[in-house]
């Protein structure tokens, strides 16, 4: 009788804590740094859009295909990896006038909510931390496709494209205007991630 009571208690505990629930639907994906492009553009004195990219991107995606609102994204970008095709300009962009890469080595995005807007589209709202300031940012995301690697069926890769924009002033990057830049920075993101 005691054994039966213990068994019932264990089952109840498991049910309450979720141990007895089916396997979680979300899959874990790691961003492939070699196939991740975080690019940006910003107005330069009205003449053109200055463009650049970050070469060091990593992170993790919990992707729930059954209910995408239960998914989550965590992206880390190394600020010093900025590349605008001119070393002297990159040095200045790494300085405390802009990215302040020595004091704040990483730019981070952590999703806080996801809204499904279509079969393969959604809006990801998250907290972006840039130069030590955290502000909410919304990204318009498209899930492009998912398939095995052509040379290895065991490895599954998925890919997303996203766009969004931030206001540099909100992050305290006040020098942008002084150099005829911004203040709005447009983001163009393409990321491939490997299923774990």
């Amino acid at each position: 009788m005691k054994t039966l009571t213990k068994l019932c208690s264990a089952v109840s505990f498991a049910a309450v804590t979720g141990f007895a629930a089916p396997v979680l639907a979300a899959d874990t994906y790691m961003i492939d740094p070699a196939h991740a492009w975080v690019q940006f553009s910003t107005n330069h004195v009205g003449w053109a859009n200055a463009r650049g990219t970050f070469n060091a991107v990593s992170g993790e995606i919990e992707f729930d295909k059954e209910d995408v609102t239960k998914s989550s994204v965590n992206v880390v970008i190394e600020a010093a990896s900025i590349d605008t095709n001119l070393e002297a300009r990159d040095d200045h962009l790494r300085s405390p006038d802009f990215l302040n890469a020595e004091e704040f080595p990483t730019i981070e995005f952590v999703s806080t909510s996801i809204e499904k807007t279509g079969d393969r589209t959604g809006l990801i709202t998250g907290d972006m931390t840039l130069v030590g300031v955290t502000k909410p940012v919304v990204l318009d995301v498209v899930w492009n496709s998912e398939s095995p690697l052509p040379w290895n069926d065991a490895k599954i890769k998925t890919g997303f494209s996203a766009t969004g924009s931030i206001d540099s002033k909100e992050f305290g990057i006040t020098k942008m205007e002084g150099f005829g830049l911004g203040p709005v920075i447009n983001l163009m993101i393409d990321i491939e991630a490997l299923k774990q």
Binding site: P96, N100, E103, F104, V131, G132, V133, G172, T174
Partner: peptide, 12 residues
Amino acid sequence: EGVPPFPPISSK
């Protein structure tokens, strides 16, 4: 540089 925030965030 404008008005700095309080508490300060960066070295500037």
